[in-house]
Design a protein around this nucleic acid. Structure first.
Length: 800
RNA sequence: GCGGGUAUGGCGGAAUUGGCAGACGCACAGGAUUUAGGAUCCUGCGGGAAACCGUGCAGGUUCGACCCCUGUUACCCGCACCA
């Protein structure tokens, strides 16, 4: 047949759409499969070949599942709130709504050109009222549950985007969006109390099937640590200084203390501190340092000793000095530590620089040289002396602290509460009203959605306040509780909000009375398989697991964990081996590939280019190789002779069907395609195949190259759609060759090969090997020591 | 610094998990066909005349190691003064 891919692809896309064969059904009696891919942010640049690879994986799995008789939900949508759109709108004067609509349209047409089997009746757009109503609804539920709070803190502020950023969005001291330097600023910030869910999020990982490195990254992100809180008595003060430590066993070695520069005790006892000016100067200096400077100066410790207040080491009873230093941070633990220079590297560096006493309490290292952090025998530690393990010493010390009532076991997390607001326009309005009498009051549920008002100038105000603050009719309102005059919150939610529950909405995308019908949730959840990028396994996945777990706790969803399985695809690099980026000019546009080679080639290539989970560079030549493969497939109908089985090809067919079936489950798409290429080579060599064989071949190729396969199916007179027909089966017995060639080794080196029956007896195999000329020559004059035969694989004769 | 991962032809990558290393594809070379080919079809393709040598490097275990163990180097990805 002629492989006119452009017409073939259009023809089948139209037919699929018309017949609606990829729509998930609400027949809940059938077994279901919910495959989820990360919905795209509809940027102005359009799609990227990376998107294609990201979706192609589960596309193949979903198509296979349908052919296996599952009711498949494979949805798509758009995570459309966000800064790039807003910034573009500010620059061009075009309303973000229009920009978003235009971009979604572009993405939709690109996705459809590739022939993805998404259920287009369930598209979710996070900026639609019908959707963000429920985003706000969930927020309100969290507010009711006490998981929302407001606090004045130093925040990461981007002076360019004029927006407050979460810690996650400002890593490395650079803005995640514009990559400019971030400054610290004091602001009122909305927080979601995600730390309350730290343990639940950690425990939830035990029940799910995530790639090991995905799980590990989440564990590290949550960062649970077990230790102790201890209260140190102070001189010249009525209160104690509370610290957190994981090494209370080393307390006898604590020769000083360190508190964060922002620690409140300084201000509180300013009048008793002799060098308060010096401390304040240091504090100011620290505030000016960028994140970058701080991390660069890790080894070069700075600090100031507090004069006028000291601490008492509760183990030794000795007075020890207190320093302020920026190597201790207010945001972790209590903002204060006991410093044990002999057994902590940071404390060691500090003590060396400031000439503080270093007392060894664990044997094993050389404290003249460096801090020793390993295990060993306790010394200089009174009642701990002689103990040989950390674990035992910690237990004993905890007992002592408990008896004296000055300390107890404690747990800390690295994860911080989630800064949940942006002073920007293009986001979900936060449904809260500030009443001078009642305080913060939630917008009543029946008034949701709280609509994002239309406006002309959505540039943020100079002070960084939300553009919504400029609309008086929006800001001024009445308190739902007392009916008095009140002001509406003008901040909006961060981009992560909409993507924190979109997978629930897909199960019932148009429901006006609930986020989704409970019956639908019960049937479809959890997501059976979620695939996406590694860059989303911490932030997006942790946030969405948190929201989902909250919804479970209040009885809104039926399962604890939203994602039963999580995998991740590798990046597609540019032809130069570098990460694709506009500035490098190495971006490949999927449209160009579809124009020149067809959508089927694009799909096959993105899956064939290498291990699905690894990064691989784009190669135009390899794309051509995939085109050649499909050209050869297109010529197979011309080689059909008769029906039934071609004896020479029978085993190849059964083997290939088996391999492709298994490889798809393990995301080994590259080897699945390689196996199908091999089969085509076998068929070409053979010269012909039967109609039945071709039908089974296009069956297994269909998830990869559906347009071409449908076309061949039609030529062969198939009824309905190949995509809706049954997945080819194989006979295990026929995947095994009756005869195999095995290698014969002499002393571990291959000296020849012999062909034997698969089930040949060892004695026969050895006899046949010895009869082989080459083998006999090698064995001549030698004495056989040992003969090892691994059935069907190898024969090794050890001889001297 | 800590944690995780990777290392195989000129290139992308395979290898039933301890059993013929280099499947499949690309590139390259030779041939056929063609007015022509950047189209198609054959053939060859790790190195070496060969004996042999070859999975980052050095050892070890084993009849047998890309695979397991010890040490080492390089690169990639997370986290990063987390007490």
């Amino acid at each position: 047949m002629k492989y006119d891919f452009a017409n073939i692809e259009k023809k089948w896309q139209d037919k699929w759409e018309e017949a609606g064969i990829f729509h998930a059904s609400e027949d809940h009696s059938k077994p279901k499969f919910y495959g989820l891919v990360e919905f795209p942010y509809p940027s102005g640049a359009g799609m990227h070949v990376g998107h294609i690879k990201a979706y192609s994986g589960l596309e193949v799995v979903s198509r296979k599942r349908r052919m296996q008789g599952y009711n498949v939900l494979f949805p798509i949508g758009f995570d459309a709130y966000g800064l790039p759109t807003e910034n573009y709108a500010i620059k061009t004067g075009m309303h973000p709504r229009l920009v978003t609509d235009k971009n979604i349209e572009k993405f939709t047409s690109q996705l459809k050109r590739v022939g993805f089997s998404f259920d287009w009746t369930r598209v979710v757009d996070t900026t639609e009222e019908g959707y963000y109503k429920w985003t706000q609804w969930i927020f309100r539920k969290m507010f009711d549950a006490g998981l929302v709070f407001r606090a004045t803190t130093l925040v990461n502020y981007c002076p360019v985007c004029k927006v407050v950023l979460s810690n996650e969005d400002s890593q490395g001291g650079k803005c995640d969006i514009c990559h400019n330097d971030i400054v610290q600023k004091s602001k009122d910030v909305w927080y979601l109390r995600i730390t309350e869910y730290a343990d639940k999020l950690l425990q939830g990982l035990e029940k799910v099937d995530y790639l090991p490195n995905v799980k590990l990254q989440q564990e590290n992100w949550i960062g649970r640590s077990e230790g102790a809180f201890v209260n140190f008595a102070l001189t010249n003060c009525d209160e104690t200084l509370r610290i957190y430590t994981t090494r209370c066993d080393t307390m006898f070695g604590a020769t000083f203390m360190v508190i964060a520069p922002e620690h409140p005790i300084i201000e509180k006892y300013a009048d008793r501190i002799a060098n308060i000016d010096e401390l304040n100067a240091y504090k100011e200096e620290c505030a000016k340092k960028t994140e970058f400077e701080r991390t660069q100066l890790v080894k070069d410790k700075t600090g100031v000793c507090i004069k006028g207040i000291a601490a008492i080491n509760p183990a030794t009873g000795k007075e020890i000095p207190i320093y302020i230093s920026d190597y201790v941070m207010m945001g972790y633990g209590t903002g204060a530590i006991m410093a044990v220079p002999a057994h902590d590297e940071r404390d060691y560096d500090f003590a060396k620089k400031f000439g503080i006493e270093i007392i060894e309490v664990i044997k094993g290292g050389n404290i003249e040289e460096a801090a020793y952090t390993g295990d060993g025998e306790m010394v200089n530690s009174a009642f701990l002396n002689g103990i040989k393990t950390k674990k035992e010493a910690i237990a004993k010390m905890l007992e002592y602290l408990g008896e004296k009532g000055i300390g107890e076991k404690g747990v800390q997390y690295k994860m911080k509460d989630w800064a949940f607001n942006r002073q920007r326009y293009w986001g979900e309005p936060i449904p809260i009203i500030h009443c001078p009498k009642c305080g913060m009051v939630g917008v009543p549920y029946e008034e949701l959605p709280l609509r994002l008002p239309n406006m002309e100038n959505f540039a943020p105000g100079e002070g960084g306040e939300s553009p919504l603050a400029k609309i008086e009719s929006y800001v001024n309102c009445t308190c739902p509780k007392c009916g008095g005059a009140a002001k509406r919150e003008t901040d909006t939610m961060p981009q992560w909000a909409g993507s924190s529950w979109y997978f629930l909405r897909y199960t019932d995308a148009h429901n006006e009375n609930a986020l989704a019908d409970p019956e639908n949730l019960k049937y479809w959840m959890p997501v059976d398989w979620y695939n996406g990028g590694m860059e989303h396994v911490t932030r997006h996945m942790i946030y969405s697991r948190f929201w989902h777990r909250f919804l479970y706790d209040i009885g809104e969803v039926p399962v604890e964990e939203p994602y039963a399985k999580r995998t991740a695809q590798g990046l597609i690099l540019g032809p130069d081996g570098e990460k694709m980026s506009k500035s490098k000019g190495n971006v490949v546009d999927p449209n160009d590939v579809v124009d020149e080679y067809g959508a089927d080639v694009l799909r096959v290539y993105t899956l064939f280019m290498g291990d699905y989970a690894s990064a691989a560079p784009w190669s135009e030549n390899s794309v051509k190789g995939c085109k050649r493969f499909l050209d050869r497939v297109a010529s197979l109908p011309d080689m059909v002779k008769g029906s039934g089985v071609t004896p020479k090809l029978e085993t190849s067919f059964h083997k290939t069907i088996k391999k492709v079936s298994q490889d798809i489950e393990e995301m080994k798409f590259n080897t699945a395609i390689a196996a199908m290429m091999s089969l085509v080579n076998d068929i070409t060599e053979c010269g012909s195949l039967t109609k039945d064989e071709l039908v089974s071949f296009i069956g297994i190729l269909c998830p990869f190259a559906p347009h071409l396969c449908e076309e061949i199916w039609e030529i062969l007179g198939g009824e309905g759609f190949l995509s809706a027909s049954a997945w080819p089966t194989y006979d295990e017995a026929k995947t095994v060759d009756s005869e195999v060639e095995i290698a014969v080794q002499i002393c571990g080196k291959v000296r020849g090969t012999i062909t034997i029956a698969v089930d040949a007896a060892q004695a026969d195999v050895i006899a046949k090997a010895k009869a082989d000329e080459k083998i006999a020559a090698q064995l001549a004059g030698k004495q056989i020591v040992k003969e090892i035969y691994i059935p069907g694989k190898i024969l090794n004769i050890v001889a001297k």
